[in-house]
Amino acid sequence: MSPQPHQDPAPPVPADPPHAEVIRTRDLTLHYGAVRALNGITLGIPRHRVTSFIGPSGCGKSSLLRCFNRMNDLIDNVRIAGHCEVEGEDVLGRDVDVIGLRKRVGMVFQRSNPFPRSIHENIAYALRIHGIRDRAAVEETVERSLRAAALWDEVKDRLDESALRLSGGQQQRLCIARAIAIRPQILLMDEPASALDPTATTRIEELILELRRDYTIVIVTHNMQQATRISDFTAFFYLGELVEFGTSAQVFTHPAHRQTEDYVTGRFG
């Protein structure tokens, strides 16, 4: 990995309107042992927009998402080559402040994973690990985050109840509240609604559109309609390659590649 100036252009991001890119990758390649999961991904993710990663299972979407906050560190035998920058800073190097990176890049997982504690404690824990212990500040942030996650009205009278008593959709919104409590700039979502019923899914989608104003959101989804409904940009992956990246309107209505067209029209996948 030789440090190079960032002058070479990212793949054809439509210039209307021009957005600053918060995340940039260049020639990013990822192996699990001998298996190559990502091959030479070059991509720029615009600020304060929703970007969808779509593609059939095993195409590398989640692996790429997990590069942005170094969650691949948890897996043995992962080798990553190439460049990945968040806010212009390299995130793949050995001496990267991973804690600081994860504070800036929050994550919501496919299976909602609230801690088996109270609703309040789920958010207070996130604050505590970043040194926020002051009672008033904690209370204020708990309310702000739950409001932002559209959960406050449903739980304000039972903040001390176990988070596990919430419904699946509520648990997922709590996880979103927990992620945004520490004020990240970017929110990574790995199929956040795939385990939820249609009503809960709609609520999550509305929430994502709401959060778009304050956060850059990257979402992995298997749901084409969802990608069209909520995302400004869409990247289509196939077998570890980035096949196409553009505005969602373009990718879904006038795809430039045959594979993309086949996939978004449901002919394979």
């Binding site: 969650m71 804690i99 994860r102 994550m107 994973n113 520490i182």
Partner: peptide, 18 residues
């Protein structure tokens, strides 16, 4: 202990020890 719980904590920026 579910992997999801560890990931949730680490993704929030908690250290391994925390």
């Amino acid at each position: 202990t579910p992997t999801g719980l560890r990931e949730a904590s680490l993704a929030l920026g908690a250290t391994k020890l925390e």
